[in-house]
Design a protein around this nucleic acid. Structure first.
Lengths: 176, 176
DNA sequence: AAAAAAGCCCCCACTTTTCCCCACTTTATC
DNA sequence: GATAAAGTGGGGAAAAGTGGGGGCTTTTTT
């Protein structure tokens, strides 16, 4: 685990792509998810989708108790990185396997909704309501209850320090 | 006009852009915010934008009980900075999440007003009136009551000391 | 193999929110 | 003083969000 090319290193490269696009997903939107697993994709986020993506997505388990939603064009970048992963090491294989096995193609329907698979909503403990959070090039989908717990545990001082570094133009490089 | 080209065309290409870059948001303006959350964007601030040809903004929670309003071109710099400062840790992810979830794209309507989302006006305790303060590259939006309280709490001596440090060449590191 | 159940997508309709347009008042400019 | 610009608020159309039914295909059960 301590080795530089390990499990977390691969996740880092995959999950947190650079913010380089013209427009990015931002904001939070709480919507209902009905008995069929359908939830409206937020209209403002829909305007961010590139024409390339064609309202196609990949939904995958997040690192925390949430889901990540990648538009197609962004997912391609993820797969590019995956294809470079080393299949000849155990950690490389485990990382790739546990990422891809929970990834699933999905697409907006004619009413601009997504049908989230039951496996995913169970994992993220989503029931009745869900919150979309724009994270730049991808989107997180959370259960309101789970998110409220994480918010309650949040240390405001740590966030404010990082925020000031970012807005103040500081280099903000604190290692892991 | 386009045929005559010549001096005026050269003037537009060279001189006007220079004038634009010398402008920044400054001053304070108190306006009404109606029941729909609409507030007029101050005309003088709009003149800073007008040659940008972009009346698109991102509104985000401020560090204090106020909102920050970034024109699109300035927001891009913020995102560039965020992408450089981002760290591949859980803390980093939480910071990014709590930054971007409270950021929202918005545009001026045909009457040059901004519709502030209810979440933002609640956070900043804005109700009925709001004050725009030009902060150079971005704008702060305050509740008059909150701002009055901060003004009342401000120690004039401390302000003068900080002012001297900043204008006197100090790096302006505030120990908040 | 046939029947039943499940899954998936489309369509529809209703409710709520957003955005466009208009008009009036106040302030600034000529 | 007259005109233009800026600020303010209301109404309604359009868009977004929500939930149900139906039909076809696929999978599972008998």
């Amino acid at each position: 685990m301590g080795k530089s090319g390990g499990f977390f290193s691969l996740y880092k490269a995959i999950i947190i792509p650079r913010l380089v696009t013209l427009h990015s997903f931002k904001g939070q939107y709480e919507h209902s998810i009905d008995a069929k697993g359908r939830i409206a994709f937020p209209a403002k986020m829909r305007k961010v989708l590139s024409l390339d993506a064609q309202e196609r997505f990949v939904v995958v388990r997040g690192l925390e108790t949430c889901l990540y939603l990648y538009p197609d064009n962004e997912w391609r970048k993820v797969e590019d990185t995956l294809s470079k992963a080393n299949n000849f090491t155990r950690t490389g294989r485990i990382a790739k396997r546990n990422f891809l096995r929970y990834a699933e193609d999905t697409v907006l329907d004619k009413q601009h909704r997504i049908a989230l698979p039951g496996e995913h909503t169970n994992y993220a403990q989503i029931n009745g309501k869900a919150i979309f959070i724009g994270m730049g090039q991808y989107i997180e989908i959370w259960s309101p209850d789970v998110l409220a717990k994480i918010d309650a545990d949040l240390d405001p001082d740590a966030f404010e320090t990082i925020f000031e570094q970012v807005m103040g133009g500081g280099s903000g490089s604190d290692g892991e």
